[in-house]
Amino acid sequence: MTEEIIIAGFGGQGVLSMGKILAYSGIMQDQEVSWMPSYGPEMRGGTANVTVIVSDERISSPVLNQYDTAIILNQQSMDKFEKTVKPGGLLLYDPNGIVHHPTRTDINIYKIEGARLASELGNAKIFNMIVLGAYLKIKPIVKYENVVRGLKKSLPERYHKLIPMNEAALQKGMENPVPVNTL
């Protein structure tokens, strides 16, 4: 199994940390992982993206131009990454702020109302965990218990009191992905 993922959105949405938790989850079940962030001018301009690969085999290139899954959290990223999903792949997006919705018919498209659900739960910061939950519901590439272990590994000890809240967000996300186009 090799899953090649791009997660893209605004800086501050937790794009990089979502990728990090996913990567740690892979390590928890003895898989190979890579996490390659954008760290350049586009990051300073407000958008952020990270390429995460989780695989049973040794990972070759950590940078790619086609992905099994694109998790898209703003319009700029939709414009840039919708076309990079491999045919038959997955596009998961939050419709909040999206004007031009995805139109491809050769990929699976789901939406998750991460921003709305996060504000309903009363904490905008758990937005990324809701989205991650939705993704793992559609593609359970890592076991849930390993995500929680990954969360513990990637969070500094002083934030471990926040783990129950993050778990609640993951659960919320798992309950709420909405299919838009399924093959």
Partner: peptide, 10 residues
């Protein structure tokens, strides 16, 4: 280079 420096791996 910046890629090896910035990326995370096991």
């Amino acid at each position: 280079d910046g890629m090896i420096g910035q990326m995370m791996e096991k």
